[in-house]
Nucleic acid binder design. Structure first.
Length: 294
DNA sequence: AAGTGCTGCAACCGCAGACGG
DNA sequence: CCCGTCTGCGGTTGCAGCACT
């Protein structure tokens, strides 16, 4: 099907939805019409150079104006994406380090698929990078572990996976990421989501609060060695190798009630200051603590 | 060597929220 | 407050390159 034909379908689609005001509908159709003549797909080095040069000279102001001014036949959106995910000078490329992987897994467990929030905690990594990493390396592995269907041995560079190792990995059960409740859901369910403990060794070590451990992780500065694949990582670090478990009451030697969670938060108030992600949720906890106190 | 399937990643799309007039 | 526009996010797709047959 030609792009023109596709466009016709899209125009019909825009009209049929009948969700937008007439000017907005016309704007969208006009935008799609314009997009027909814009270049799509992979960027070539010349385009990269133009975008880089333009931003270097003028900075980032209006993405929609930028392509025309920079002499690019691209949409503003495409330019923005290219810059954010590839051309930005502070972008770190290459394999994820062990610490980065740990951070991603922990934060994903806590926050769900909030890739931009997670990427904010990993300097130089884009949300797209993390999302791709999760979708290709981690999620598949989780799925494989959950299902009892055939499990494909993760690809390793320069080493073969022994059958024993393969069975070991298959036997480790990984929970799916818990849905992070928003404040309404939280209040309606009346329960606190469990903090996940992916790497029990880490959490049981220095600090007494799971949140402190996370904060500790956030401060990680050393990247000693990177891993070619997630599978390799799991081989080198067995506790990490998906012996993930939820933060059950037993982990703390006694049943953790909602109040106790709140108490923990009150005992470690700095935790939420350093770790601003999901702050709203924790603030709710603190507010509840206030109510309980009254 | 050719065909096929798989993987990883770049890019696209639609939507929602922010922002400004 | 409303409306139009812009920006950012997360899900999804498409494709290049590689491995395998």
């Amino acid at each position: 099907m030609t792009r023109a034909a596709v466009w016709c379908f899209k125009v019909e689609d825009v009209k049929s939805r009948n969700r937008f005001s007439r000017p907005e509908t016309m704007r969208r159709i006009s935008q799609q019409y314009q997009n027909l003549f814009l270049k799509r797909g992979t960027w070539d080095p010349d385009e990269d150079q133009k975008l880089r040069a333009y931003i270097k000279r003028h900075g980032i102001r209006n993405w929609n104006e930028m392509p025309k001014a920079a002499g690019l036949l691209r949409s503003g959106k495409s330019c923005r994406l290219r810059w954010m995910n590839y051309l930005r000078p502070d972008i770190k490329r290459g394999s994820f380090s062990k610490e980065e992987v740990q951070t991603i897994i922990k934060l994903q467990e806590m926050l769900g698929n909030r890739w931009s929030t997670i990427s904010a905690k990993l300097p130089g990594r884009t949300d797209n990078d993390i999302k791709n990493f999760w979708n290709t390396h981690v999620r598949n592995r989780f799925n494989n572990n959950i299902s009892n269907t055939t499990v494909q041995a993760p690809k390793l560079q320069g080493m073969q996976t022994s059958e024993e190792e393969f069975k070991q990995r298959k036997s480790s059960a990984i929970p799916t990421a818990p849905k992070v409740l928003n404040s309404e859901e939280y209040s309606s369910k009346g329960t606190l989501p469990m903090l996940p403990v992916l790497f029990s060794d880490n959490f049981s070590s220095s600090s007494s609060s799971p949140l402190n451990d996370i904060n500790e992780n956030m401060r990680m500065e050393e990247n000693d060695g990177s891993f070619e694949s997630f599978a390799e990582l799991s081989l080198l670090d067995q506790p990490l190798s998906m012996e993930a478990k939820k933060c059950n009451a037993e982990d703390y030697g006694e049943a953790y009630t909602d109040e106790m969670w709140v108490q923990e938060l009150l005992n470690y108030p700095n935790a939420s200051h350093n770790f601003d992600v999901g702050q709203e949720f924790w603030m709710n906890c603190l507010m509840q603590a206030q109510l309980l106190g009254n």
